[in-house]
């Protein structure tokens, strides 16, 4: 599950950054990758669609959101957590 989630998220982020998945490293931030607020909102939509989960995110207060978007790794961890919480039971 973990590796599959990671691969899918890297692909989604790579698509927004117009890069190859192999060019993305986990410690990069979205800013490093040149993804703006619209790219972020689109990436979150793709994540929700792909994993059938709800991602709590308000573009007005990205930093106070429960969804940590500070790096590619933090997004993967957050999505893992949401899948576990929302698919449980």
């Amino acid at each position: 599950m973990g590796a599959e989630v990671k691969q899918t998220i890297v692909e989604i982020i790579a698509e927004q950054a117009v890069l190859e998945p192999s060019d993305i490293s986990l410690d990069q931030s979205l800013e490093d990758l040149g993804i703006d607020s619209m790219g972020l909102v689109e990436a979150i939509f793709s994540i929700e669609e792909r994993f059938d989960i709800q991602v709590p995110f308000n573009a007005n207060e990205p930093e106070s959101s429960e969804f940590d978007i500070s790096s590619v790794a933090s997004i993967i961890a957050a999505v893992d957590g949401l899948i576990a919480a929302q698919k449980a039971g």
Binding site: V41, I44, F45, F57, N58, A59, N60
Partner: peptide, 8 residues
Amino acid sequence: EGLRVMSK
């Protein structure tokens, strides 16, 4: 809602 700029 999709734009994620609405207050709840």
